[in-house]
Design a protein around this nucleic acid. Structure first.
Length: 288
DNA sequence: ACCTCGACCTGCAAGC
DNA sequence: TGCTTGCAGGTCGAGG
């Protein structure tokens, strides 16, 4: 469950279990994630206190007492589960999918935090003190779409001169950081812009036009709505305490091929096309 | 420098 | 029922 709203939901679920607590034990059951975990991964974390848990785009960053930063990414199929110890007894919940529980943190808060990732596109990495700014995975990220700095002007300047589709541009994390396939499709429908439109056409002579205004507003709105709903749960994915997200019930186009577009003006039907090897859902009738 | 595509890995649903 | 195929929320790096 891994676009910005899902990662933010995970962050909010993990924060009470991890912030202010230290690692009592760390188990790296399967080190061969997208990047292999270092052999001393557990030793470097054990005993450290989590000062804060932040998010940048789709990355989680745990600030540790040593100054290290634990960088985590959910990839395509990653999820975290928090099991709280019941006061008094040492309760241990049985995992539903132990085969893909790759990393387990036992925290001094009493919580057990388990990272599960069937496809292993996710990863964890420890960044040494003071090196976050140099981290290659973070350095080329574009603006946070919910930050104050992100607006139509910034979006337009990032797309200015781009010879690719609007869809591909919005998936490019250097343009805006945190969108994925679902929220790009949803934002474009809200803004009534075609995913096939040339990205550069949201700028006119280098300045944001009315399309850029609509798109920037749509991006913010869809992400805020999704976070409020606890993100989207496709299949049987869960949030950190086993709850489902609810935003999948609010999809306007994503995975709704053949269903009516919610915009009534020119009535339309959602179509699925493939762009850059990935599904795009949109309404050809109203998204221009 | 920009852009597209394959590769990474596993599970599930649909089709034959 | 069982096998095959296609598809999935991401992103890095090779090659054009």
């Amino acid at each position: 469950m891994p676009e910005l709203p899902e990662v933010e939901t995970v962050r909010r679920g993990l924060a009470p279990a991890m912030e202010g607590a230290h690692f009592l034990a760390v188990e790296a059951r399967r080190p061969d994630l997208r990047f292999p975990l270092p052999r001393d991964f557990a030793a470097r974390l054990k005993g450290q206190t989590v000062r804060g848990l932040g998010r940048r785009a789709k990355y989680l960053l745990a600030d540790l007492s040593s100054g290290d930063v634990l960088l985590m990414h959910l990839g395509m199929s990653g999820s975290f589960r928090v099991d709280e110890a019941t006061p008094g007894k040492f309760h241990h919940e049985r995992s539903k999918d132990p085969a893909h529980d790759h990393v387990v943190f036992r925290m001094s808060s009493g919580a057990t935090v388990t990272f599960n990732d069937p496809r292993r596109f996710g990863f964890m990495k420890i960044i040494p003190p003071g090196r976050v700014e140099d981290e290659p995975l973070l350095r080329s990220l574009g603006p946070e779409p919910l930050g104050n700095a992100f607006d139509a002007a910034m979006l337009a300047s990032a797309c200015d001169g781009k010879r690719t589709s609007l869809k591909a541009a919005l998936l490019d994390q250097r343009v805006v950081a945190g969108l994925g396939n679902i929220y790009v499709c949803e934002a474009l429908n809200r803004a009534r812009l075609s995913p096939r439109r040339l990205a550069s056409t949201i700028a006119t002579r280098g300045k944001p036009n009315e399309r850029a205004e609509r798109l920037a507003a749509a991006i913010k709105a869809v992400l805020q709505d999704a976070i409020r709903q606890g993100g989207s749960s496709l299949r049987d994915h869960r949030q950190t305490h086993g709850e489902l997200g609810y935003f999948q019930h609010h999809f306007r186009v994503y995975d709704r091929e053949g269903k009516p577009c919610p915009w009534p003006d020119p009535p339309g039907v959602v179509k699925r096309i493939v762009q850059n090897g990935r599904s795009t859902f949109f309404c050809p009738a109203c998204q221009k």
